[in-house]
Design a protein around this nucleic acid. Sequence first.
RNA 1: GGCCUGGUAGCCAAGGGGUUUAAGGCAACAGUUUGCAAAACUGUGAUUCACCGGUUCGAAUCCGGUCCAGGCCU
Length: 315
Amino acid sequence: MFSISNKNKILVITGTTASGKTGLAVKLAHKFNGEIISADCRQVYKYMDIGTGKDLGEYKLKFPAGKEVNIPYHLIDVVHPNTEYNLVKWKIKAELAVKEILNKERVPIIAGGTGLYTQALVDNYDLSVVGQDKKLRERLDKKNIKQLVDELKKINSKFAENLHVSDKKNKRRLIRYLEVLRGAAGFSQKASGDKNDYLIIGLTYPRDILKKRIYERLIERLEKEDMIREVEKLHKKYGVSWKRLKNFGLEYKFISLYLKKELSYDEMVEKLNIAIGQFAKRQMTWLRRWEKQGTEINWVKSEKEAERLVENFLK
RNA sequence: GGCCUGGUAGCCAAGGGGUUUAAGGCAACAGUUUGCAAAACUGUGAUUCACCGGUUCGAAUCCGGUCCAGGCCU
């Protein structure tokens, strides 16, 4: 991938969980004068550090001479866990951060495992102007799937029919589609505006190795980093409800169940480990889909390989 | 050695002569994805019920034997 013009050059590090995205992003940021924008839907929350793998320590590089370099990062620790965050909020802030970094003549490095967020930024999704309508959602939530699909058909039969079967059975999605289509605007799926020049680097491991890494990291977070206490504090000190913790998923969900004594420690570890593996699988599915849509992801096996790509890209 | 109970997909497990061309759950795999996305949701599996033989129009289901596992007895 060459850059012909002086388009803005932006780096993207994506991939599965436990594949070393943060470490690579920090190294590249240091080497190529960059700043990191986290593309992680859970790292935006304060106090959720271990479970989301923020690894804030990694942003501080120490050198033999005793010198320290702090790599700037964005979109980490931006709201309280009880504040609802979502795609639009993230996208707006991420776009702002990109501009800001470019203005400093530095390289924006988008790094994170939330496929939707990353793709929305890179492909410049033209998000609907229709926001969330709490009352409408509550009302629609009382209906069953069939009723929701019928209602959708009434408003836009073509849209309803074109939905994938899995979406037709997904209440949460159906409600959002109704929310948007009720308004005049509807969905506009065209990418708009100038496209920046992106180099996308993908990180993953063969599945068996990835699973081993996931398990080892989990045990370490549990035994050495006291992730359980983090979750307990979220509930007790920061007032995060069990329901919300469940919705955060993975470590927050399963450790909550353990704290509520609904799971034994061993059950919690086993189920959480499996759930993280399944999450990694879903991340791969997303990225494969993105590739099928025509996006080039440069799957890289080593830092060196990544550095070479970036060097070439920034030339 | 004798008696009893059980052997159904990678794991747990229902069914106990025809309505089973064998429920369900978990895992695995594949996929959906434009305002909760670490979320939410969808799809896929046994020509076969330890093995051999028998009864029967018909057996995973009944009978006999063999093997395996667990329990009890001497």
